[in-house]
Amino acid sequence: MTATLFESGVTRLDAENAAIQEMFGGMRRVSTGARRNTDQFTERLVQFETFMDGIRTGRRRLAHFAEAMSSSDFPLLFDVSLDRQLYAAYAAITPTWQNYARASTVNNFLKVQRYATSGIRGLLQKVGELAEFERRSQTETMYEYSVHKYEAGFAVSWETMMNDDLGAFLRLPQDLAQSAVDSEEAFVTQLFCDASGPHASHYTVGNANIITGNPGLDRDSLQAAITQLMQRKDERGNPIVVKGVRLVVGTGLALTAQEIINTTEYRVVDANGNVRVIQGNGVASNLGIDVNYWIDSIATTANASTSWWIFADPNGVRPALEFGRLRGHEAPALYEKIPDMRRIGGGEEPYSFDTESAEKKVRHVYGGTFVDARMTLASNGTGS
């Protein structure tokens, strides 16, 4: 673009918009004498600054900029300054823990105690004439945990808010609220998952809650695991009724789990070559799938992509996990610091007098524990 083309374009636009310029107080001109005293480069630079000043202050329409110069003349300026967008925040995860952990409410920060009793329930014994009946004793198991306070926040300066033409900082309170949702999901996940997959402190041979052979997830292994869970017995050999099962996987097994559930027909060939068609998948009844995205972050080994868990319905007699919130503070709360700055003559300013910053934070109070190892089974998927 030559200087002549630019100057002629500006001269024509100035002539067309004389009335508009007069309405807004006119546009500052560079004197003819000053132009004679500057070289050609400085002259064009001053003229361009004057032209852009008119656009910034509203005395000249933005369309004139595009008419006088094409976007190809200033690719960086258009890309950075005039065509900017704020990408949306990453989609918030949908929490899954309510489907396999029991939600509870606690009264304060002191330890809460949960008791599980057993030993009295059992089949009655036949008693002969004048014979003694069986006197049973009850056993007790105590689980305890306490809730803790969790917080996060931010401070934004006055200058930052003034420069925030894209509204990037207006969504920060929403991000804080989502942080509380993420924190709940991550906390519950850490109760049953560690770096190697199924939590080594809870899924043990002694607890008999490791799926036999640590198989990978497929229809047969899932069916065997559900059967194993539904065959659970208490301390006296009484059956534990399981009315619903949740399959929990990370993203590595999300598609596999969905394919198992969505399959509507199986064909089985026996040793004689006979084909048997099985309608349905045989495992979908009373079974739900939960894809827990935090498993991929907590399980830091390759087992994150192969581990899977099943849980009995947490609303049954006894849950595998319990998650508790503080009474009266069940939901996360957003706070902002009370501003202490006021203009002389009136008008509150939402900023600190000393630092001219605005501060906000979120607070959430929660805790939980692993409860009953009988109510869950897991496999790391390694086949060993």
Rank of each mutant, 00 (worst) to 15 (best):
K243E: 12
K337Y: 06
A378G: 10
Y351H: 07
A224T: 12
R36A: 12
I298R: 01
S70H: 12
A68V: 12
V291I: 14
P319T: 13
G252P: 05
L176W: 07
A18Q: 04
V181P: 04
V291S: 11
Y203W: 01
T306V: 07
R102G: 02
L229N: 09
T204M: 00
M161W: 04
F192N: 06
Q98L: 04
G216N: 13
G33A: 08
V181F: 03
P75E: 13
P319M: 14
D165P: 00
Q98Y: 02
Q190V: 02
Q178C: 08
I295E: 02
D182K: 15
Q40G: 09
N292K: 01
Y115Q: 12
G383M: 01
M375C: 03
I93C: 06
S146A: 13
Q113F: 10
L13Y: 00
G25N: 09
R56N: 11
I289T: 15
G9C: 09
D14M: 14
E144M: 08
S118A: 06
R374H: 05
F48N: 10
Q279D: 10
M230T: 15
A177V: 13
F192I: 10
R135T: 14
M230K: 15
R56H: 11
T42E: 12
T264W: 07
I93R: 12
V46F: 12
N37D: 15
F74P: 02
L170T: 10
F187V: 03
S104K: 08
A304Q: 09
N17Y: 08
R59P: 05
V106K: 00
D340T: 11
P339F: 05
T382N: 09
V269L: 13
G381Y: 00
E16G: 01
Y100L: 04
F192S: 08
R325A: 06
A155M: 05
A89Q: 11
A257I: 04
H202G: 04
F323V: 04
S221L: 11
R363E: 13
L255E: 07
L62A: 09
S157H: 06
A257E: 08
M27G: 07
G347L: 09
S305T: 03
F370E: 09
R59V: 07
G216R: 13
A101Y: 05
T301V: 07
E330Q: 15
I211D: 15
L229F: 08
M230L: 14
G153V: 03
G367I: 01
D164I: 01
E235C: 01
K243F: 07
E151F: 04
A200Y: 13
N238R: 08
D39R: 08
V371G: 02
A152N: 05
Y90W: 02
R318H: 03
R135K: 13
G280Q: 06
L287D: 13
T376R: 04
G206W: 01
P95Y: 07
I226P: 07
N238C: 12
E235G: 01
R35Y: 04
